[in-house]
Design a protein around this nucleic acid. Structure first.
Length: 601
RNA sequence: GACUCUGUAGCUCAACUGGAUAGAGCAUCUCACUACGGAUGAGAAGGUUGAGGGUUCGAAUCCUUCCAGGGUCGCCA
């Protein structure tokens, strides 16, 4: 590793504990045996060693063990200046100098908490991956924000990250929109209708469904069983016909397909830009769905997969605790799995240094990805064991699930617009944006509104289902994105005033921190560990919660202490440094969530 | 039915991976400030962590049996 991270306090304390324990009790234990944690607020000290597990090795009671270990650790060279023991917990006091030096050292570095990109292996992150027959909704927002955020988190851990999506651009769903548009559209386009392209195509998807239902009803009324009617409705047959023509490369069909997908991409681009997410490379199912087929057939030849008498191809995963899984239909056509195998192959070919792929896809597909990774391993991809399905739960509405047919979907564009509009109203009331031109104001509304939405969706553990109540709407007060933004803006405002008054940011003399300041400093100090854990567990909510905890601590501190009005220069210096480190670390954390911070709001 | 995830305050969510008295926000009540930016801060109240049993110094967390909910289970993507 070319880049050596500075020794973290917990590692240092752990090492000190291990050597002190050895010196005191004559037992050499690995450093990892010593459990170090932050001392709880209600006790004196900064770090705590849990001594219960050590008693076995010291052959003394936990309290006595803690006493002796504490004494030895204070005597040893290092930053530990005192200790107290409470019921087997050894609370260590760290020299206040340690913290002021840390504030002026590690915490002052550019990119504190992050590693330079390219110092860790190349990872591909897939997210969004929409169908092209309808607009993006609330569920897509969770998906996009998660994928985008984990990309940035991995990149902050030094990984080179390539962000991609697979666009589900072929299949019966888009053919339905095409058929309906041809029948009922009258040549309507996004330009003539004034509708966003994805909204227009979505409209015809709905129109198809209505026409289909009407036809089914008519057939049933004429005496046909429901099941048969649903298979024989003329408009459905038309859509299936369109799919066949598409696969045969029929010019008219392919051209219409290209046109309508083009409309959708135009609409999606607008939505992605508003969301503030982007991609490095796009993959299209229409390009990849045949690739997997060849590899599967090769697999048959080499005996990895089995072909049955009817011609269908299967993989036997019973040895891995799963079932047998279909890879090719008996007519030789590809299934979903075949296509995902093809896409994965293509990606490993496009980027030969790829260490793994991360798929941001809903938790209903957990089984699918388990199978996919096993199949990739069987095909000889060592990367397979590091591939990860970033699985997330549904966003539920109070009435239950979102159902497009029942009109209970929350549209992504509409929701974002609503957030912006709320931000505008609140800002108008606060009146802090006077003097900014309309564009600059709009930029602020967007950042504030988007922060509310992103933070709301990212602060929850991805694997959990979460509740979204459109009536209660998303809050702008309390544990929210705008609260975090507000404190950032306030801190920045103080720093601007500092400059305006000609006060220099201290480079040396600052007082040692008080317990109030230690609340903030302790959280600042956690940042690298938080990023590491978020990356290891693919969990942006850890970063979101850290941002909030830090902000709350600073906000509380801010309330009780005047920064520029401090009694003496050294105290003011510490407070200014604290404010500067706070705004910068917070900016880093929020960036990892894909949230951009305004300077005013 | 099998597998899997979830269940924490009225509601929405945390809990440093087995640690000390389970914490925040919203809602309710009370209070504070010459506002360095009040989209604020402090406090009160609110809990048998779905239920029972087990493991041990110690359990929301691990094991187990139930209960409730979500998801998946060979030719949709």
């Amino acid at each position: 590793m070319p880049l050596v991270a500075p020794t973290r306090l917990d590692d240092l304390v752990q090492a000190l504990a291990a050597s002190a324990f050895d010196a005191t009790f004559g037992v050499s234990l690995p450093a990892a045996e010593f459990s170090i944690q932050k001392t709880r607020r209600e006790f004196a000290g900064d770090r705590t060693v849990v001594c219960f597990p050590l008693a076995r090795h010291s052959k003394a009671a936990p309290d006595a063990t803690a006493e002796q270990l504490g004494t030895a650790m204070v005597e040893a060279p290092g930053p530990i200046t005192g200790f107290n023991v409470v019921k087997g917990f050894l609370n260590l006091e760290i020299a206040p100098d340690y913290w002021s030096e840390w504030l002026m050292g590690e915490a002052a570095q550019d990119g504190y908490g992050t590693r330079p990109e390219g110092t860790a292996p190349h990872i591909m992150v897939e997210y969004s991956s929409p169908n092209t027959n309808k607009p993006l909704h609330l569920g897509h927002l969770r998906n996009n924000f998660l994928g985008h955020s984990i990309s940035r988190i991995l990149s902050a851990r030094g990984h080179r990250v390539t962000k991609v999506q697979i666009i589900n651009d072929r299949g019966i769903h888009i053919c339905k929109s095409m058929v309906a548009w041809r029948k009922f559209g009258g040549g309507e386009t996004p330009e003539t209708s004034g509708l966003k392209g994805d909204k227009l195509v979505g409209k015809y998807y709905v129109a198809f469904d209505q026409a289909f239902k009407a036809e089914v009803k008519e057939l049933v009324d004429g005496g046909m069983p429901q099941e048969d009617a649903e298979k024989q409705a003329p408009i459905l047959l038309e859509a299936q016909d369109a799919l066949r023509l598409w696969e045969q490369g029929d010019t008219d069909t392919v051209n219409l397909w290209k046109t309508m997908n083009g409309w959708v991409y135009g609409g999606f681009d607008v939505t992605y830009a508003t969301m503030g997410v982007e991609f490095d490379k796009l993959y299209y199912e229409s390009d990849t769905y045949l690739i997997g087929k060849d590899r599967v057939l090769e697999g048959v030849a080499s005996g990895v997969f089995d072909q049955r008498e009817d011609g269908s191809v299967w993989v036997d995963l019973t040895g891995d605790g799963l079932d047998e899984k279909l890879l090719l239909r008996k007519d030789g056509t590809a299934v979903y799995m075949t296509q995902d195998i093809g896409t994965a192959l293509l990606r490993f070919k496009d980027f030969n240094d790829l260490d793994r792929q991360v798929y941001t896809v809903g938790n209903e597909q957990e089984y699918h990805f388990k199978v996919l990774f096993l199949v990739l391993a069987k095909l000889g991809f060592q990367q397979a064991e590091r591939c990860h399905h970033l699985s997330y739960g549904m966003v539920e509405l109070p009435e239950g699930k979102m159902k497009s047919r029942e009109g209970t979907v929350v549209d992504a564009d509409d929701l974002m617009e609503e957030m912006f509009s709320i931000a505008r109203d609140i800002a108008a009331e606060a009146g802090k944006l006077e003097g900014l031109d309309e564009n600059a104001q709009q930029e602020v509304f967007q950042r504030v509104g988007l922060s509310a939405l992103k933070y709301f969706l990212l602060k929850v553990d991805p694997k959990k289902n979460m509740m979204f109540d459109p009536k209660a709407s998303i809050d702008f007060y309390g544990n929210t994105g705008p609260f975090i933004l507000f404190n950032y803006v306030r801190g920045r405002s103080v720093l601007r005033k500092m400059e305006a008054e000609g006060i220099a940011m201290p480079t040396g003399d600052i007082t040692t921190p008080s317990p109030d300041e230690m609340e903030v400093i302790g959280l600042l100090h956690d940042l690298p560990d938080v990023i590491a854990e978020a990356a290891d567990t693919y969990n942006p909510s850890l970063v979101a919660n850290w941002c909030y905890d830090l902000t709350k601590a600073y906000s509380s501190y801010y309330q009780d202490h005047s920064i520029l009005g401090a009694d003496d220069a050294a105290t003011r210096g510490l407070r200014l440094v604290l404010t500067e480190r706070f705004t910068r670390a917070l900016k880093t954390g929020m960036h990892l969530l894909g949230i951009a911070l305004p300077e005013r709001m």
